[in-house]
Design a protein around this nucleic acid. Structure first.
Length: 321
DNA sequence: AAAACTCGCAACCGCCCCGAT
DNA sequence: GATCGGGGCGGTTGCGAGTTT
């Protein structure tokens, strides 16, 4: 059974907000507050808008002390560090940056910061996604998970879901940021027993199936570089990845994953939301099915971390085979 | 000068969580 | 304990502005 819509979609206005609507909403909230009920608010305020739309407009644009404009280097570093530690929990990240909204940070990350980081990793590369000779991940300096802990996770308090002590004065080495942010591991790393062993030795599975933890590269036996386009091919890549995982492991082989142990968080939630933090490190045994779910759920993110627009299927992107 | 392309951001969509009943 | 429904969130889309060809 589907959910009832939150409002009568036929009778609500959509699209950009007019100045009149803005002032109506602003005036109403400043006068009466939200009343804890966004759904009822637009009618009371005389707006033909969905309650959720009002909420978004208020939170992202109208509420006081919103900071727009350029992000500072310190803000960049904080965002990167938190992203590396907890993933795309934009609201939590936003909570550490006064005046910034989750939407702002999300947009900033998707449009600028990813690219910025990538360029930092590959300074010689004029076109970040095109490089014919990349070192396989297991042949590079292995990423140390302790760096995560050292520079990110110690700031996170799982009980309050906030970061303390990680502010603009916190120094996060750029080397950490660049080494911990990378393109995904390509399935070819599972091709041989040896490469698989090396891979497993150096990289916690979570960090490779998902977004971080490997030097961005994929390698094939012939070292060639193949172009594929977005769209269906991406899905095929993911399916291939799943296949490699299945082929490469014993039937009942388990992965060890880290997971916060605070109340309100559970195993299933971790599997559904492939973000990890390390404030409380509790090893979790996760079977192959969980890992597959992670791959599926992180589909576009895992294969598109540093790219721009997956929906534009005509665009080409180079992967490293 | 104009068409094509790219970028950035506001807004929407739909799912999940969790409190109320 | 089950169901309902609002709030919150992350992912995605659409479009205007700017840039390139």
């Amino acid at each position: 059974m589907g959910r009832a819509p939150c409002c009568d979609k036929a009778n609500v206005k959509k699209g950009p907000w007019s100045p009149e609507e803005d002032s109506k909403l602003k005036e109403y909230i400043q006068k009466y507050g939200t009343g804890g009920n966004w759904i009822a608010l637009p009618q009371k305020a005389g707006l033909k808008r969905c309650g959720k739309s009002c909420r978004l407009r208020w939170l992202n644009y109208l509420r006081p002390n919103i900071k727009h404009g350029e992000f500072s280097d310190e803000e960049d570093r904080i965002i990167c560090a938190l992203f590396a530690s907890i993933g795309s929990r934009w609201s939590i990240i936003a909570a550490q940056l006064p005046g910034r909204t989750d939407n702002d940070i999300k947009n900033y990350w998707n449009t600028k910061l990813k690219k910025k980081l990538f360029m930092g990793m590959h300074p010689q590369s004029e076109r970040p996604l095109q490089s014919s000779h990349q070192t396989p991940p297991f042949q590079t300096q292995p990423l140390s998970s302790s760096l995560y802990k050292e520079y990110c996770s110690s700031y996170y308090t799982s009980t309050t879901k906030s970061f303390s002590g990680l502010d603009s004065s916190t120094s996060i080495p750029l080397s950490f940021l660049s080494s911990s942010t990378s393109l995904p591991i390509h399935p070819s790393v599972f091709q041989t027993q040896e490469s698989r062993a090396n891979f497993m030795q150096y990289y916690p599975v979570k960090e490779n199936l998902l977004m971080f933890g490997s030097e961005g590269s994929c390698s094939s036996s012939d070292g060639s570089c193949t172009q594929i386009s977005y769209g269906r091919e991406i899905k095929q890549e993911v399916m291939a990845f799943q296949g490699y995982i299945s082929d490469g492991l014993e039937e009942n082989q388990k992965f060890m994953l880290n997971y916060g142990s605070n109340e309100g968080e559970n195993v299933n939630q971790w599997a559904e939301k492939p973000h990890a933090y390390f404030g409380d490190q509790v090893p979790l045994e996760c079977d192959l099915e969980n890992v597959k779910q992670l791959v599926i759920s992180s589909n576009s993110g895992a294969y598109n971390l540093f790219n721009v627009d997956e929906s534009k299927t005509a665009e080409k992107v180079t992967y490293f085979y």
